[in-house]
Design a protein around this nucleic acid. Structure first.
Lengths: 232, 232
DNA sequence: TGCCATCCTCAGGTGTCTTTCAGCAGCGCC
DNA sequence: GGCGCTGCTGAAAGACACCTGAGGATGGCA
């Protein structure tokens, strides 16, 4: 998960930028391109671990590009397919995409699938640990102190997002766009879910999900209390 | 990539000190430890961008520590392996180190590899250091002398702005537009926040946030007489 | 169809932060 | 030294951010 490289090829600028931002926020190094013009070069120089490929592209389409990726790299491929492109979807998988996401999609889903693919490729660990809590995004399991914690789907997605950002402050806007796919701003929705998530997490230990007033939320162990000299 | 943080875990003191000195000289903030005793804590508090890890360590060995790094941080890892530890080398890479350096090594090589890894991770450093204060914009944390300082959101934004400008004088107008987004001019608002910020910062050390009468404010170490040539 | 879990909205309560104001201190120019 | 200007800081009220309980809407499942 850490520092893996992801190449995004998508012509629609709004989507490309959103995906780029979301993946970068999840800790990946991202290179984004509007088309496959320089694909060979990008594969050689950037050496992505995963390529996110739109099916419908001007010039060479996604399937042609998939071929290229397969021939000249070992990267995994996630394809973006149109809503009802059933034929596309089948073709994408049979022709060897590793996974696909159907448009319109929530950014959190794409991030999760990229993460899952990296894990399958053996290039990323499958669990994240914060304090005594273990979050396994792939298995859909959360443990605290060795005991499983039951979460609803939304709570789990929220926790996974915060886990991917662990140590970094995530604003409510970022959370809303990444977990819910909303871009209108209703901070209360996030607050409500933070509240229920805390109730479940804190039944087994001290606070891990901290409020940073005016900025957002962070997942981290402890309050950072007195700590050792970081400068040497 | 100056200003990135590097954690070094190496038991041989001669090597550790040499590496520490070389990396510090290359512009990184370095924390060095002889073993992995406090690794979790160091990861959490120091939030390194890269960890340099010796394979052979007393207590938990390098591979066990690598696991810990992967689970509880997003740092990249460079492993130090013995000369002919071919098995080690393979194991290190397959178990997910991002790079390795074979002992004995030239310091320049290690520095080059750390630099390359940072570039691959696309990790823009998120911290700024001024004197003994460390401002981590991403984590929403300010440390002085290793101790965290509690700031409100506005104080924090103001400090981040001044930190980004460190060494340069920022006028009250610039500050108002950049931090508050206001374009009407009420200098007192800035003065009030400078005042509260100073009270909190100076509880732990000498003045860092200086008034330049008639011009604005600067963040820098020391009083610095007439010649403003800060080393950054 | 009816039940249940989950999702989302709403509204009230609480505590903190922001901003303004006003008075005081310090600097520099005459 | 006197005066005006700039900067500092304490106090206060109004605004804002956050938390949480309650309940309606939705969708899956028997």
């Amino acid at each position: 998960m850490t520092g893996a490289r992801v190449l995004v090829v998508e012509d629609a600028e709004a989507i490309r930028v959103a995906v780029q931002t979301a993946l970068a926020g999840a800790g990946y190094a991202v290179l984004d391109k509007p088309d496959g013009q320089t694909l060979e070069r990008d594969l050689r120089v950037f050496r992505p671990d995963v390529v996110v490929l739109d099916v419908m592209l001007p010039g060479r389409d996604g399937f042609a590009l998939l071929e290229v990726v397969r021939r000249s790299s070992t990267a995994g491929v996630v394809m973006l397919t149109a809503r009802d492109g059933v034929a596309d979807r089948l073709r994408g998988l049979t022709e060897g995409a590793d996974d696909y996401v159907v448009k319109p999609f929530v950014l959190a889903e794409l991030i999760a699938r990229v993460g899952a693919l990296l894990r399958r490729l053996g290039r990323a660990p499958s669990t994240v640990q914060v304090g005594d809590a273990v979050i396994d995004a792939e298995a859909g399991v959360v443990l605290r102190g060795g005991q499983p914690i039951e979460l609803t789907a939304t709570e789990f997605k929220l926790l996974c997002y915060l886990a991917a950002q662990r140590g970094r402050v995530a604003s409510k806007t970022q959370i809303l766009t990444s977990v819910w796919g909303y871009d209108d701003y209703d901070p209360n929705l996030v607050e409500v879910y933070v509240s229920t998530l805390r109730r479940k997490l804190e039944a087994r230990g001290p606070r891990l999900l901290h409020t940073v007033r005016g900025l957002g939320y962070v997942l981290r162990e402890g309050d950072l209390g007195p700590c050792p000299q970081p400068e040497s």
